[in-house]
Amino acid sequence: MTHNLILRVVSKSLIPLIILFALYVQFHGDFGPGGGFQAGVIMSAGIILYALVFGLDAAEQVIQPPLLRILASIGVVIYAGVGIVSLFFGGNYLNYSVLADNQVAGQHLGILLVELGVGITVFSVMLIIYFSFAGRSRP
């Protein structure tokens, strides 16, 4: 598959669009359809497309597996950390209303951060899984 010219050209122009769309879905989730789960999966689908067309080694140079392991934990830490921070501000665990001056702004900030954590974790876990499967056949 690495020598297929049409596939290479088409996917080269598609992958930036896929990643841009994933970012749009991530940060526009408050107003339209979208959110962290969808964005993480779409973003990882873009990288998986890159790995399928250009080979696993090239994809692992784009995003190194050790970095992915760190990212997967960082996502969960962001989510749980927002809960801890809201404890310190005097609210209940995961009660975002206390994060900012008024309730609506606090909820907005909290939802944005939480969705970011979800997106990072889902993105990196999907890639960890794909790299594990694809790397298994390597000699």
Binding site: G35, F37, G40, V41, V122, V125, M126, I129, S132, F133, R136
Partner: peptide, 20 residues
């Protein structure tokens, strides 16, 4: 269901890893 779908693919991949 939104969350169940993503959890579903993660558990499916665990099953596939066991198959391997």
């Amino acid at each position: 269901i939104l969350t169940a779908i993503v959890v579903g693919v993660a558990t499916t991949s665990l099953g596939l890893a066991l198959v391997v």
